[in-house]
């Protein structure tokens, strides 16, 4: 019976999913395809060295990383990947229940012989599969275009970078689950979730401006993994992984409990 709910969630999100996939894959393919224009390009490196470090940090640029495909992909491409993937995941998560209220379809759905927990968890599972598909297709596309237009030195580093996107997307989806039962319209859910992603990015930008506000980086999901470490060591910090999974599980737990307790 859960299969029915999962298939329904995929069907409802099908357009949204294709749009997300095309945009995220499109950007990564573009970045992977043009990588050799930037790599070992002395003019670009010199230009980057003239830009204030806070500005470079805000956009994930590290001139010293511009010597390898993995280094390039860990800069601006990774930031775009995290922002886009995180944004779509937050929207999916936040609309899990809010969509039913906005469309006034909640009476139909919640009067069917499914428990509220079943409905919520089925949607979570369906969305996790959607995220996993995005991750796998992006990973495959970056490998393909990296191989075609550049040279991939460490495929493990690419895998880890793309995996970090999946983990951060799960964390943003978890934040969406935290408030999906509390908002009344799809539009409100989308606005809040995009707002959260933007605020998270803003915190990352601000944290690099001055040492006195460096602590703001602790509040941003975009700083949870060190891009240089991912590119050079092909590893993720376990603390970052744990934080992402914690936010994801917490969001699901709060969402389920809230849904079970509230009036539809």
């Amino acid at each position: 019976m859960m299969g029915n709910l999962i298939r329904n969630e995929w069907w409802v999100n099908r357009r949204n999913f294709v749009i997300a996939l095309v945009i995220i894959v499109g950007f990564q393919v573009l970045f992977a395809g043009v990588s050799d224009i930037y790599l070992n390009n002395e003019d670009i490196v010199k230009l980057l060295e003239t830009i204030p470090s806070a500005m470079l940090e805000a956009f994930g640029m590290h001139p010293e990383q511009m010597t390898s495909f993995e280094g390039w992909m860990s800069s601006e491409p990774l930031l775009f990947y995290l922002m886009l993937f995180g944004g779509f995941a937050a929207v999916w998560g936040s609309q899990t229940i809010a969509r039913e209220r906005g469309n006034k379809t909640q009476d139909f759905l919640f009067s069917l012989p499914y428990s509220r927990t079943q409905i919520f968890l089925s949607r979570v599972l369906a969305q996790w599969v959607m995220m996993a598909i995005v991750f796998l297709i992006v990973l495959g596309s970056v490998y393909l275009f990296g191989s075609l237009f550049s040279t991939i030195g460490d495929s493990g580093a690419i895998f880890i970078m793309m995996l970090s996107g999946m983990l951060i997307a799960m964390a943003f989806a978890g934040i969406g689950y935290l408030f999906t039962t509390l908002v009344r319209t799809e539009r409100a859910a989308m606005t809040i979730s995009i707002g959260i992603v933007m605020v998270s990015f803003l915190l990352k930008m601000l944290s690099g401006l001055d040492d006195s506000v460096a602590w703001l980086s602790e509040l941003s999901l975009f700083n949870i993994f060190d891009s240089v470490r991912m590119a050079t060591e092909a590893s993720l910090s376990w603390t970052g992984v744990a934080i992402c999974l914690f936010i994801y599980v917490l969001g699901i737990a709060v969402g389920v409990l809230s849904l079970r307790r509230q009036d539809i």
Binding site: V12, N103, K104, T105, D107, F108, S111
Partner: peptide, 10 residues
């Protein structure tokens, strides 16, 4: 159950 305002996914 038939709700007073019937709505389904459009």
């Amino acid at each position: 159950y038939l709700p007073s305002e019937v709505e389904y996914d459009g």
